[in-house]
Design a protein around this nucleic acid. Structure first.
Lengths: 148, 148
DNA sequence: TAGCATTAGTTATGCGGATAACTATTATGC
DNA sequence: GCATAATAGTTATCCGCATAACTAATGCTA
């Protein structure tokens, strides 16, 4: 692969990242959320209460990031952190009622964003897209990827 | 589109963003660069000297971000900022010799990253990918996009 | 059981990127 | 020609996410 192709790909990924995040941010403003927080709330809605280490793994970000995000979401009243009964190091994170109603709103925005994102693409491409993107993400996964 | 599909897509985009950026960061460490800075240097290499407003437009980020990045890259000796002769508000940014040699190294990393990213995908998919990603990015472009 | 490695979480710090508010300069319309 | 709008850039502040360094608790093993 020559540099032109490589650059086109890397640049496209970078630009998509910026734009998709910016668009998500704009949609989340009415909910008082910042991009990244919606992923945490959706993960809790998907999987149920879990400890921060699991959140960190599920979200694909590092523990310190989870610490700060959970702190802010807790301050906003959307989640609750309770000490884990079996492990005094861990704290269990769960949605509050406020968080649950927020998740419903996020889900609607999420559908709108996805639809907007794939506008104008053939249905087959749209259907294949999540799989392709997951492959790409797995390929560059620093942990467990092609390196380690 | 139902929520499951929308969520799969948005989640895949978010994860790819994180992973691709993290992998780029790891590759750039030996060069003493942080992710995002390589894009600025590559843009200067592509287009030649330009003012910060043009950089902001080309990189798809806001002027304050360019201010900080150029300041750090200038402190590192990779770029130079000179007052524009025709417009006393603007400053022209250009690569130094150090920056030019750095760009050559970045280009190699860039090819390696792109190749690593698309590993295992059929050639046709790889060929179509930049176009697809650009379409996605354009679809969610907040400025000039489907909204304004 | 004593010692040590592992794990959960936090704090400190740094960068990219965003918005808001501001200054300085250039362009435009009357 | 002058007042006003538009543009280039900076500063301040916020958030996500990262690494490094640390504490506290758990698990394992000799």
């Amino acid at each position: 692969m020559d540099f032109e192709q490589a650059d086109a790909l890397n640049q496209a990924i970078r630009l998509l990242s910026l734009r998709h995040r910016a668009r998500a941010a704009a949609l989340l403003v009415p909910l008082g959320l910042h991009p990244g927080q919606e992923a945490l709330l959706l993960e809790l809605a998907r999987t149920g209460p879990m400890i921060q280490a699991q959140l960190s793994e599920a979200l694909g970000c590092e523990p310190p990031s989870v610490t700060l995000m959970t702190r802010k979401l807790e301050a906003a009243g959307h989640i609750r952190r309770a000490p884990a009964p079996t492990d005094r190091r861990a704290s269990i994170v769960e949605l509050t009622d406020s968080g649950k109603t927020l998740v419903d709103q996020i889900k609607q925005l999420w559908r709108a964003l996805a639809q907007e994102t794939v506008a104008g693409l053939p249905a087959q491409t749209v259907a294949e897209l999540p799989g392709i993107l997951k492959t790409l993400a797995a390929n560059v996964d620093s942990r467990g990827g092609p390196v380690r």
